[in-house]
């Protein structure tokens, strides 16, 4: 796999909008062409070469790996709409990392800001630290959010993650989030998304869920009144085929959306 190395020269005061930093844009280009790709610094149109040291070599999309060094916590939209290849970010990263991506893989070695993996359509996003709010969520005004792909967050995800996630059985698309712990409103308006939380979660989990699966292996601070307990289970099969064992209480909901619902919430019994 060919590697392209980017190193941020100096952290900027104003955010950089780097939606051109994707394997799709780099594929088949020479270093000089990559350096000339546009970026937005506040409202000024600049180039990658102005802010990053570029080295290495790019091949076709699937065989291009972008490694980003330096503190890019103020760089937004890295990996936007990418369809293949790999991006490795060795620090914290700014907002919208990997939003609307269709394929490939992004690994963030630090924390990610808000809207990480928003409206993901495929591919994999791995965050080794914590993630901000709206992980894998729909942008404002969209009625269908994350449609496929996997997001793995080792630490905590913020509020309102996985908003309007939508699965498709005929197309075998199962949007999935694995995270260490979660804040409030995880899986709001869920339409088939799968969420597995290793630790504790805050309030209003699965609010307005129409269908989907939420598994919580820790504690929940406050359960919504519109969830009804069905029974206790020892084995959960996720829609993507994965099996989780352990003692769980099974709830159906959210009943505020419809009287009969395919939405399921599992909370570990300790």
């Amino acid at each position: 796999m060919a590697e392209v190395k980017l190193k941020l020269k100096k952290k900027t005061k104003f955010p950089l909008e780097a939606d051109t930093i994707t394997p799709d844009n780099f594929a088949g280009k020479t270093l000089n062409e990559i350096k000339k790709l546009p970026l937005y610094h506040a409202k000024e149109l600049v180039t990658i070469g102005d802010f990053f040291d570029v080295s290495g070599k790019a091949e076709d999309i699937a065989n291009t790996k972008i490694i980003i060094d330096g503190d890019v916590s103020n760089v937004k939209r890295i990996g936007e709409k990418m369809t293949g290849g790999e991006v490795i970010i060795n620090s914290d990263v700014g907002m919208h990392v990997g939003n609307t991506m269709y394929g490939g893989k992004i690994i963030v070695k630090g924390n990610a800001d808000d809207w990480a993996g928003a409206m993901l359509q495929g591919g994999e996003l791995e965050i080794e630290g914590n993630a901000g709010h709206y992980v894998g969520s729909a942008y404002r005004g969209f009625w269908q959010g994350m449609k496929n792909g996997v997001i793995r967050v080792k630490g905590k995800v913020g509020n309102e993650s996985m908003l309007w996630a939508k699965s498709s059985k005929p197309a075998n698309k199962w949007p999935t989030l694995y995270c260490g712990s979660a804040n409030s409103f995880l899986g709001l308006h869920n339409h088939g998304g799968t969420m597995v939380v290793e630790g504790d979660v805050d309030r209003c989990i699965g609010a307005d869920q129409v269908r989907g699966t939420i598994v919580i292996k820790g504690k929940i601070s406050r359960l919504l009144p519109s969830f009804k307990k069905i029974d206790d289970v020892t084995e959960i099969t996720l829609p993507n085929g994965e099996v989780i064992t352990g003692k769980f209480a099974q709830y159906s909901g959210d009943h505020s959306v419809s009287k009969e619902t395919a939405g399921r919430l599992y909370i570990a019994i300790k």
């Binding site: 209003c204 919504l224 519109s226 009804k228 307990k229 959210d254 505020s256 959306v257 009287k259």
Partner: peptide, 17 residues
């Protein structure tokens, strides 16, 4: 939020726990 949620469920004719 919880109250609005419960009102909507009751409006749907659900017996809550």
């Amino acid at each position: 939020y919880e109250l609005l949620n419960a009102i909507r469920a009751v409006l749907r004719g659900v017996e809550l726990d």
